[in-house]
Design a protein around this nucleic acid. Structure first.
Lengths: 197, 197
DNA sequence: AATGTCAATTTACACAGTGTCAAGTAAACA
DNA sequence: TGTTTACTTGACACTGTGTAAATTGACATT
């Protein structure tokens, strides 16, 4: 793998991310990406075996560039379950708009391609892990509202935070991401945190 | 339009609904539907100009068969805002699994076809109207939690009740529809109904 | 200077699914 | 008998993905 090879690969990934961002993840073809990267469509296949593989690689590339781990640090450092929950929602809620183009493309590819579905699943399972940790922190403090088993609460929080909900609220309803985050925090607090007398 | 014509049209619609139910709205082609209806693929185009048009007609057909209006009656007859909200969630929550196949197909077609997107939008706006009415009923009683403007609360409830959330909870998380309905009611109550002292 | 290697190019094509078009058929009806 | 209606068959255009083969141009090795 020569350095030329790596450079071209990176250029393709950057072009992919750029194009997907610009077009909201819709209607971007292999040829469009190739053109944006300044190479031929077929040359893209020298680096990525399929469209899905390219999308998955673009997702990973973007995660690296945006440094997910650093962003998650505040939530991990929280001193209470309630704080951890709020900080996690903050982090994820502001992350969504930055990955939206690529995420949407993968989300769409999912319908046609099993591999894309699996890749998206993986990603969402990683996100679920954050939800689980926040719920677990609450549970450990005895602050999880008593009617929720931790697993069930995790599923519920996980579902609330799914990309399509952000998409609908900001796209169709016209909310800002800030409003979205605020609503998610409110609902999560009222739903999962035990009311203290 | 002869009676022969109408009969065939109905047969196509029924085959469409059946096939989409069976396959969860995925991977059903025009040829498959034609075969299920006992006619040639091209004959389908004598009745419906495009796949999208067929899907939209199938949606309407199913709505008629399942009699949405009758189902909504209990919610409309509710004597309090809280009751109206709960009954609406009940009604819609149990309706989703019955329309899921067709709804999913339309949801998928949306990505490629503007007309499908518009049709789905229409449908969802009708659903929103139910949300609005429930929130409005709460608001009229002074029971809407004070931090929510009615429009914003409507958007929030609307989003919660979107099909993908049901899909995720019942599909990926393995919840039953009953559990889904229960969780939605709980969240809606805690989020939108003012805590009385 | 000849040779080999490698990235990338161009051209061509297979495949799936939608939608169109033209010609033909079979029954109903005037 | 001729016409209309509903449908059939078969062929084909279009789009986008993915595959394959022959070619070019730059570099490195010997």
């Amino acid at each position: 793998m020569s350095s030329q090879n790596v450079e071209t690969r990176t250029r393709i990934l950057e072009a992919t991310v750029r194009m997907l961002e610009e077009h909201g993840g819709r209607g971007v073809r292999m040829g469009d990406i190739a053109k944006a990267a300044g190479i031929s469509r077929q040359a893209v296949y020298l680096h990525f075996a399929s469209r899905t593989e390219l999308l998955v690689a673009a997702t990973r590339h973007l995660d690296k560039v945006l440094d997910v781990d650093r962003r998650l640090a505040p939530s991990r450092a929280a001193t209470s379950g309630a704080e951890r929950l709020a900080l996690y929602i903050d982090c994820w809620g502001h992350y969504i708009p930055e990955i939206y183009g690529v995420a949407k493309a993968l989300l769409l590819a999912r319908d046609a391609d099993e591999a894309a579905a699996a890749a998206w699943n993986d990603r969402m399972l990683a996100m679920r892990e954050g939800c689980r940790a926040a719920i677990e922190a609450l549970h450990a403090e005895g602050k999880l509202a008593p009617e929720w088993a931790p697993k069930r609460a995790t599923d519920a929080l996980w579902t609330m935070l799914l990309v399509p909900n952000w998409e609908h609220l900001t796209g169709v309803c016209g909310w800002s991401t800030r409003q979205y985050v605020r609503w998610m925090k409110t609902v999560a607090q009222r739903t999962f945190i035990q009311e203290s007398a």
